[in-house]
Amino acid sequence: MAKESLEQFKQVISNDVALQEKLRAIANPDTFIEQVVQLGEENGYSFTPEEAAEALAEIGDEEDELSTEQLASVAGGAKPETTVPQTCSGTWC
C-alpha cells in the first residue's frame, strides 16, 4: 500500500511546480525525506520515512542507468550529431 501511495504522490509532485520548488530547495537528505513524508501526509498519502528513502534510492538507481541511445553513443555505435569538415592533404582524405 505504501508503494502505491508513493507512486501516486510522485505523480502529484511531477504535476505540481510549487511542490517541486519546495523539495528542490532542500539540501539535507534527511530533511528532504522528512519533508516528502510531511507533504505526502498533507496531500492524503501515507508512507514512512524509510519507505520514502527506499523509493528515492530506487529512482536514483534508475537515473544512473544509461538509455539504449546513451549506450550506443558511448560504445561508438552512434553517428555524431554534428560533423567536422575534413580537409584533404596529400593523397588520402
Rank of each mutant, 00 (worst) to 15 (best):
E54A: 13
S67K: 00
E69A: 11
P85G: 08
L19M: 11
E21R: 13
Q38I: 13
E54M: 07
S89M: 10
E65N: 09
N28L: 11
N28M: 06
F9I: 00
A78I: 04
V37W: 00
A57K: 09
T31A: 10
E42Q: 15
E7M: 12
D64K: 15
C93K: 10
A2Y: 01
S89L: 05
Q86C: 10
T48N: 04
E58K: 13
T48E: 05
T91M: 08
S89Y: 07
F32R: 03
T48S: 15
P49N: 05
E81A: 13
E63N: 15
S5M: 06
D16T: 15
G44I: 03
T68W: 13
P80I: 04
V17W: 07
V84C: 05
I26C: 00
Q20D: 04
V84H: 05
Q8S: 14
P29A: 06
G60S: 11
L56Q: 03
A53M: 06
V84Q: 12
K22N: 06
G77Q: 10
K3V: 14
P80G: 07
P49V: 06
A72M: 13
E21L: 13
S46F: 13
E54C: 03
L71C: 10
E21Y: 08
L6C: 04
T68N: 10
K79Y: 08
I26A: 02
A53G: 05
A57E: 08
L66R: 14
Q35I: 03
G90P: 02
E63W: 06
Q8Y: 03
Y45K: 00
F47H: 00
M1C: 11
A25S: 15
K79A: 14
L66Q: 12
C93G: 05
A72E: 09
A75W: 03
D64F: 03
T87K: 06
A57V: 07
E62S: 09
A25N: 14
Q8L: 15
V37N: 01
A78T: 12
E65D: 09
